[in-house]
């Protein structure tokens, strides 16, 4: 099994798609699920899976043990979407493995014994799936996963039973949002049996016009069919709609759009203190301006990367700051530096 970690990605959809992810849920046959396992069983399950993974050096995994590692490290993995919020909650004996290039991660003893997550960037759902599947097939030779003919892979929550797959796309949809099309989008997603939610998963708010879309159904639908439906049918429609919404705004309300974008840029270039939420919202406007051709000189990737670098975990790792006020200063400094704003304030007495 060759894992396509190094494959070049098409960035044709970069103006709309930020991250593509394919997650597979698996459990070890004959063991209780994590929620029913005692301490000894949790450790046995964790160590058994970790041992199989350590025997596969081609996966190139680094390890993160939430019981012993500093919490800031967990926060960075969370912001990179390599672990889930639930994984970082105090609880069973857990372990995560991840590739530094963020193409693959595994979570042991989250809701299921094993969650394998493959990633691609813009429109890289096929790549995300290939990475997750490659890892799963390698592990399949060493671990006995709970499975039955009718229901497929057996998972702690029946909403994952079957393929155990959750394909998700993180989409930047400011155009649809600004023309008031999100409700229609939500209904369309419901009709297609897709889940639409905010950036941090279930029940979360859509910060910076970022929305996560994923499949609901996992039983009776082949992974490849689901992939083709999401990628070829659904995603192409959403991208078309978002671009059309941006064009509509440009042709009918150009000043409105330009004003938002230029104000955002001015704030980002001159602010001395920036909160995380504020920075993400402003960067979202900036990203829209770049994609719509209103701003030149700032690459789309820079705005995308900044949306991650301004997150608290990343800033803490980069600067050592943990307090809120110094973090706000550091965030504003970083953004000014990257966007060619004025120099940091002089140290006057």
């Amino acid at each position: 099994m060759i894992l396509p970690f190094e494959q070049h990605e098409d960035d044709a959809l970069l103006d709309v798609v930020l991250i593509s992810r394919a997650r597979l849920a698996r459990n070890i046959s004959g063991e209780p699920f994590v929620n029913r396992a005692n301490r000894e069983e949790q450790i046995r399950i964790r160590d058994g899976i970790a041992s199989a993974l350590r025997g596969l050096p081609e996966l190139g995994l680094h390890w993160f043990d939430p019981e012993t590692a500093p919490s800031a490290e967990g926060q960075v993995l969370l912001e990179r979407h390599l672990v889930s919020p639930k994984f970082l909650e105090p609880g069973p004996h857990r372990l995560a493995g991840y590739r530094e290039d963020a193409r693959l991660s595994v979570m042991i003893n989250e809701e299921d014994h094993l969650r394998i997550q493959g990633y691609g960037l813009a429109g890289g759902l096929s790549l995300a799936w290939a990475n997750a599947k490659g890892c799963e097939r390698l592990l399949d030779e060493h671990l006995n996963f709970a499975f039955n003919e009718q229901l497929g892979y057996l998972t702690a929550c029946p909403t994952n039973v079957g393929t155990g797959i959750r394909l998700s796309l993180m989409l930047h949809l400011p155009g649809i949002s600004l023309i008031g099309g999100m409700d229609r989008m939500q209904h369309a997603a419901d009709d297609l049996n897709l889940e639409m939610r905010g950036t941090s998963g279930e029940g979360s708010e859509a910060i910076g016009h970022l929305h996560q879309i994923s499949n609901r159904r996992t039983l009776g639908v082949d992974e490849e069919d689901l992939l083709h439906f999401l990628e070829d049918d659904f995603l192409s429609r959403v991208v078309r709609e978002e671009r059309r919404a941006r064009d509509t705004l440009l042709s009918t309300r150009r000043e409105f759009l330009d004003d938002r974008v230029q104000r955002a840029l001015a704030m980002l270039r001159h602010a001395r203190l920036l909160g995380e939420r504020e920075a993400l919202d402003l960067l979202s406007e900036l990203r829209l301006g770049i994609a719509a051709g209103l701003l030149t000189g700032v690459p789309l990737q820079t705005a995308g990367q900044l949306m991650q670098r301004v997150r608290s975990g990343h800033l803490t790792r980069a600067t050592g700051c943990t307090e809120e006020e110094p973090l706000r200063i550091q965030r504003a400094d970083l953004v000014r530096r990257e966007l060619g704003g004025d120099s940091p304030p002089s140290e006057s007495t």
Partner: peptide, 13 residues
């Protein structure tokens, strides 16, 4: 009625 599982299966199943 419940559809039957489609997709990957354990290689030894």
């Amino acid at each position: 009625e419940l559809p039957e599982h489609q997709g990957l299966r354990p290689s030894g199943f």
